[in-house]
């Protein structure tokens, strides 16, 4: 009896094994081995920052020659270099981006009414465009926090804040914000304006303790002619900006973010 079981199962195993081996030869499909290598080199967060459906789709496009090695914004220059070496092409330098929330309001910006609905910015937007007095400002319910595949965003005092060291510049949050106030900025930019309000100073002062009044002090301070008031809002021209930080120091509302003060000059790293 026992020998039957052994023979039957052993025989089945051998037959099936040969069948699989034969099938592997018969149904052999040539696969580009680089696709697997490229996929391993990618961050694997499937953030979609490259414009493809995910990391494997990007890998396939790269192996097929449809994409560039520096097409992965999340991986930065390190990944771009590795991809270039896999493909055997020259390294293309990647400009690192980071996300910036153009609002500093949060608890310092007044509310129009008390909102008790679903904890999501898009849901809050449905009710009269959100519960903040300022139509431009951050709602602070964290749709961007949920969308970030790298856990780089958090809501502090009612306003979303990006951790620039964790941010990979994939721009997933940019499209997740119903107010469209998250923008990609160069990682090496030293000063940034953290406000989106185009209201006049007098009316803005009533609803927000920190928003840009368009007072032109920064414009007058800047010796490089790099910061200008457009539509009552300061805008920096990164081509001209040297990152001296004078505007950030002089801004009466302290809403120009000087990253140098946080972690030394990023210009040094360039």
């Amino acid at each position: 009896m026992v020998q039957y079981a052994v023979l039957a199962l052993g025989g089945m195993g051998i037959v099936l094994g040969f069948l699989l081996a034969a099938a592997a030869k018969l149904f052999y499909v040539k696969v580009d081995h680089r696709i697997g290598e490229i996929e391993e080199a990618l961050p694997g967060a499937n953030c979609g920052g490259c414009g493809y459906a995910g990391c494997s789709a990007f890998a396939a496009a790269l192996a097929g020659g449809d994409a560039e090695p520096n097409g992965c914004p999340a991986g930065g220059s390190a990944v771009a270099e590795r991809l270039s070496s896999i493909l055997g092409v020259e390294t293309v330098k990647n400009t690192r981006l980071t996300a910036l929330v153009r609002c500093s309001g949060g608890a310092r910006a007044r509310n129009r009414f008390q909102y008790e609905g679903i904890g999501d910015c898009h849901a809050a937007m449905r009710i009269a465009g959100g519960y903040k007095e300022c139509p431009y400002g951050c709602i602070g319910l964290g749709s961007c926090v949920k969308s970030c595949p790298f856990s780089a965003i958090s809501v502090v005092d009612g306003v979303a804040v990006v951790d620039h060291e964790r941010c990979t510049g994939c721009q997933t949050c940019v499209s997740s914000c119903p107010k469209n106030i998250i923008v990609p900025v160069p990682y090496y930019a030293d000063v940034n304006v953290a406000c989106s309000s185009r209201d006049r100073g007098a009316s803005l002062r009533r609803i927000c303790d920190i928003g840009c009044l368009g007072c032109r002090i920064c414009e007058k301070t800047c010796i490089h002619n790099a910061i200008h008031i457009e539509d009552n809002l300061a805008a920096i021209d990164f081509e001209k900006c040297t990152g001296c930080g004078d505007c950030a120091e002089k801004c009466p509302r302290k809403l120009i973010v000087d990253a140098k003060l946080d972690r030394g000059s990023r210009l040094m790293e360039v």
Partner: peptide, 17 residues
């Protein structure tokens, strides 16, 4: 044994056909 072999076989066949 049979199920595992069958699924592998079907997978290979599908990839080709």
């Amino acid at each position: 044994l049979v199920i595992a072999a069958l699924v592998q076989l079907v997978e290979m066949f599908l990839q080709k056909a």
